[in-house]
């Protein structure tokens, strides 16, 4: 049976990697979900108990260890926990791992996967809600994957593992229980975006939790007679400009939903395609939906006000149709 719940599919995907190769290990103190989801993760941890290194609260140390272990023949999947905790390991993730292959003139590989539950998780406040992906896009040599659909997480993880690149898996705290409906799209190769809903009026681009919001927005827009094409970026580094250009070449309109802050964000990078390769394809200005440039507030009404909600995506797309 095909797994439709994202969380279950990702646990299966990790398990598949481990079953296929005994040199795949887990290093980290966190599971692949929060406490509420530990029941789904427990069977994986039970099955591979001896291949899981449960760590102290020492992100800098164990992320660096994973880099070393990767150099020496293992494939570590490093569970960092909350995305904000990646900052505790920043020197190893951005200043060690991505440089080694290039600086060794292609001789020393670092096949490692860092995984963290990034994103606005609801009332995490400013220190537990980071979306480190845009900053990580500045680390040349680091691959960033961001699966959002149950049918895609397995293929994407497998492709990342086979790529032997140091990879950061931007996971999201709110994705775990998301259910995929309908016939899954055939996964494209690593580095290519996926068109998860074809349409002709407006292109809506998202990834991770924002992709879920984009799909919901497209359903609402369809009810209002607007045919949106939804693109799942899947990988942020590299970013697939071609698929986005093809879509916008057809629709002439673009909405991007991205929980990052506006400046130097995933959305701004997507928009920048249309100052170069995609120049002239747009009929209207790009609509970028980011989280406003303020530390994430705890209070629920303030937080909800700033999230790229479904209704905001709908409104942005409708605004382009006039």
């Amino acid at each position: 049976m095909t797994e439709t719940m994202f969380g279950k599919a990702k646990v299966k995907a990790v398990g598949d990697l481990m079953r296929a190769d005994e040199n795949v290990v887990i290093i980290g103190g966190a599971g692949f979900g929060g406490l509420l989801h530990s029941k789904y993760v427990k069977p994986l941890f039970d099955e591979f108990d001896s291949r899981i290194l449960r760590t102290p609260i020492a992100e800098l140390g164990f992320c660096g260890m994973a880099v070393g272990a990767a150099i020496a023949g293992l494939y570590p999947i490093v569970t960092i926990g909350t995305g904000s905790f990646a900052f505790e390991a920043w020197p190893q993730i951005v200043n060690e791992a991505p440089n080694i292959f290039y600086m060794s003139d292609g001789k020393v590989k670092v096949p490692v996967m860092f995984q963290a539950l990034g994103g606005i998780r609801i009332s995490g406040a400013a220190q537990h809600s980071a979306r480190p992906q845009a900053m990580l896009m500045q680390a040349a040599g680091l691959q960033i994957i961001a699966p959002s659909r149950a049918s895609d997480v397995g293929p994407l993880l497998k492709a990342a593992r086979e790529s032997e690149r140091p990879t950061f898996w931007i996971d999201h705290a709110l994705l775990f229980e998301e259910q995929e409906t309908g016939t899954p799209v055939k996964p494209p190769p690593l580095g290519k975006a996926a068109i998860v809903r074809p349409g002709k009026d407006v292109t809506i681009v998202g990834y991770s939790i924002d992709l879920i919001r984009c799909v919901k927005a497209a359903v609402e827009l369809a009810q209002q007679g607007i045919d949106a094409e939804v693109i799942d970026l899947r990988t942020l580094s590299p970013l697939d400009a071609d698929t986005i250009c093809e879509s916008v070449g057809k629709t002439g309109r673009l909405v991007v939903a991205d929980e990052c802050y506006p400046a130097a964000s995933v959305a701004s990078e997507v928009a920048s395609i249309f100052t170069g390769k995609g120049f002239g394809l747009l009929k209207k200005p790009v609509q970028r939906l980011n989280f406003a440039a303020v530390p994430v507030p705890l209070s629920p009404p303030l937080e909800m006000h700033l999230i790229p909600r479904v209704d905001k995506i709908v409104a942005a797309a409708k605004g382009l149709m006039g």
Binding site: S123, A125, A126, Q127, P297, L298, S299, P300, L302
Partner: peptide
Amino acid sequence: FGRATGYSGGKAGTLH
């Protein structure tokens, strides 16, 4: 409770 009357106006919460 995330309220306006809190020490940080509801922006920080329990951890902070």
